[in-house]
């Protein structure tokens, strides 16, 4: 049976992980390659690297990192952050990334999704949608690291992205992100039902039960989190054992 996936997310700046990662026995906690290997050993199903570097050197550094990670890692990984062109995607895939995640560039020019899906196949094109709830408009899509409201409805945009050829939607609720109060069940469920591609839920995970809930009540295909994994609040293996006890199919 196809299992639900658990995905740690690493924020990368200048080729290093940031936001802090605290692991016992890991001397250099900023090294993405060491962290990636560690998560893979603990049973992570995939990894996401989100590049938040904002310099001209960005591409070269990121590509070196992707290559170093791909050389070591025997599970799939996705790279996102500032990807805007076919050439960006080609360079990442040629160096070993399994999927790329598009965000602002896809909203600025949605045809980019079609072009990339045709060229590289839907299986490696993820569209990351950052959404926030506010009255009276409901769930709206934000870009540029969550600073700019596009005025677009979240469900409608995710459906368009999937129709254009995205193979997966990475849905982050900015309203929940950092709260540790749980995933946004309503919008995750609404997007999950609206698209026929897998949906990764992100933003708000604070407990093991939050993962159970998003899988059972919002039909998410995968759950993504960052700090709760990095700071050892929740171990990947313990989380998967918890999910299995709750009757959710996981790879253990």
């Amino acid at each position: 049976m196809l299992t639900k996936r658990i995905i740690p997310c690493l924020d990368i700046k200048d080729g290093r992980t940031v936001k802090g990662v605290r692991f016992e026995g890991l001397r250099d906690a900023g090294d993405p390659v060491a962290l990636a290997a560690r998560y893979a050993r603990e049973g992570a199903d995939e990894l996401v690297f989100l590049d938040i570097t904002a310099t001209n050197q960005k591409r070269t550094t990121l590509i070196h990192l992707v290559r170093d990670v791909a050389r070591e890692l025997d599970i799939p990984f996705t790279v996102g952050g500032g990807i805007g062109t076919v050439a960006d995607v080609e360079a990442l895939l040629l160096n070993g990334a399994d999927k790329v995640s598009l965000n602002s560039a896809a909203l600025a020019r949605p045809e980019l999704i079609d072009e990339l899906a045709r060229r590289f196949g839907s299986q490696c094109i993820v569209v990351a949608a950052d959404t926030r709830f506010h009255e009276p408009d409901g769930w709206q899509i934000y870009t540029r690291a969550g600073t700019h409201n596009t005025g677009r409805d979240a469900v409608q945009w995710c459906r368009e992205a999937a129709d254009r050829g995205a193979g997966e939607i990475l849905l982050t609720s900015m309203s929940n992100d950092g709260t540790k109060d749980g995933f946004a069940l309503d919008i995750t469920g609404a997007v999950s039902r609206a698209v026929s591609v897998p949906v990764v839920a992100s933003g708000g995970a604070g407990s093991m039960q939050d993962f159970t809930t998003v899988f059972q009540q919002a039909q998410a295909d995968a759950g993504l989190a960052a700090s709760i994994f990095h700071f050892g609040e929740i171990g990947i293996r313990a989380l998967k054992e918890h999910l299995r006890q709750d009757g959710i199919p996981v790879r253990l």
């Binding site: 996936r5 193979g167 591609v197």
Partner: peptide, 10 residues
């Protein structure tokens, strides 16, 4: 309810 692509561990 059947997501395509079939993506993940089986």
């Amino acid at each position: 309810g059947l997501k395509v692509p079939h993506m993940g561990w089986n």
